[in-house]
């Protein structure tokens, strides 16, 4: 297992380099222009000067090389300097700068990380915690009313897009309910809000309810269906019959034998879904103005902000590659039948 992990880790390096190049070329060759969103009152000579100042006109390979250097060499050193107070000689070097905000991309990402992790991460956690029991009970009581209901909820979760469900809950809880009511919820997420005491925690909780639940619905739908299918696969296995024949308590049969085995694929699916937390939930973030990584990405795309788009997508790529590896390793740990050596 250890050598497998090491081998896979080494393999990720060329994979990621290749991905970074592909992302760079896609972003660069797509018809987008950092000055495209400026008002038409700005004449083209000025636009050209702006592009020149941003370095958009340099040869592609130079731009890519610069990005590589900044991302892999400069930014890690700056991070180390910040973290440990070392002097690594980064002063005066040009960091990876966003076209739109003219500020370091990594700082933008760091700034966005908390709200994304807070909202999307909580949603993932809540969604998973709801999904597991639903999936287990649905499978155990297949075709029961509960199962039918679970199927219905999952169908809704799968098919209703967040730009609908999000707006629906806003209309219900922010518009129709008077704002002095206990059930009123804020429709706009306050990213500057800090939790310092019980009251501010309550406010944080309230403003998270809607985005978290909208996202959790989708996550619940996926994971509960997956859990149900996996449980059903195992419930009909001979070893479950064996367990019953042994005279084990039904609880033991389901929780120890069936559940443990069913969880192997579920756990890996959950692990594979984690990078999507960092990717944020573009639409949900937009609807509730959470302004996390998803919103950063979409604004950067709209604004032709190549360094931000490139860096964000690349970080997502790293996470996806990494969590794929983690899922594989988890599979190996959880299922004794699988050996990677």
């Amino acid at each position: 297992m250890f050598t497998f992990t090491i081998r896979r880790l080494i393999l990720t390096v060329p994979t990621l380099l290749f991905i970074s190049f592909v992302i760079f070329m896609i972003v660069k060759l797509s018809p987008s222009d950092p000055t495209g969103n400026l008002p038409l009152t700005i004449p083209s000579e000025v636009r050209e000067q702006i592009r020149e100042a941003l370095g958009v006109n340099k040869p592609l390979i130079v731009q890519y090389g610069l990005w590589l250097k900044q991302f892999f060499w400069l930014e890690p050193r700056i991070y180390l300097e910040h973290a440990f107070g070392w002097d690594m000689g980064t002063a005066g070097e040009v960091r990876l700068i966003s076209y739109q905000t003219r500020s370091p991309v990594m700082e933008l990402i760091m700034q966005r990380m908390p709200q994304t992790l807070m909202v999307v991460g909580t949603a993932y956690l809540v969604g998973t915690l709801i999904a597991l029991p639903i999936g287990i009970i649905s499978a155990y009581k297949q075709y029961s009313v509960f199962d039918q209901l679970g199927t219905l909820v999952s169908m809704i979760g799968f098919s209703v897009p967040p730009f609908f469900s999000g707006v629906l809950v806003i209309v219900l809880f922010s518009v129709m309910i008077p704002s002095d009511s206990f059930f009123w919820l804020p429709s706009i997420y306050d990213t500057t809000h800090e939790v310092t005491d019980w009251e501010s925690f309550k406010y944080q909780f309230r403003q998270m309810i809607m985005p978290v639940m909208v996202l959790a619905l989708q996550i619940t739908a996926q994971i509960s269906r997956f859990t149900r299918a996996s449980m059903l696969d195992n419930l009909n296995q001979d070893y479950v019959r064996t367990a019953r024949a042994k005279g084990l308590k039904e609880q033991t049969v389901v929780l120890v034998h069936v559940l443990r085995n069913s969880m192997i694929p579920v756990v890996t699916v959950i692990a594979l879904g984690i990078p999507s937390i960092f990717g944020g939930a573009i639409i949900t973030e937009q609807v509730f103005k959470v302004n996390g990584l998803g919103q950063l990405l979409i604004i950067a795309i709209q604004g032709g902000d190549v360094p931000t788009v490139q860096t964000l997508t690349f970080i997502f790529a790293i996470l996806i590659v990494l969590f794929n590896l983690i899922a594989d390793v988890l599979y190996g740990i959880l299922d004794p039948r699988i050996r990677y050596d």
């Binding site: 922010s174 518009v175 704002s179 804020p186 429709s187 706009i188 306050d190 500057t192 937009q286």
Partner: peptide, 20 residues
């Protein structure tokens, strides 16, 4: 507090409907 983001509908709603 100068908030940005979302869409025009949501912004209009926040002022005229929810009063946020």
């Amino acid at each position: 507090t100068f908030k940005g983001g979302g869409d025009a509908t949501a912004a209009g709603r926040a002022v005229m409907e929810t009063g946020e």
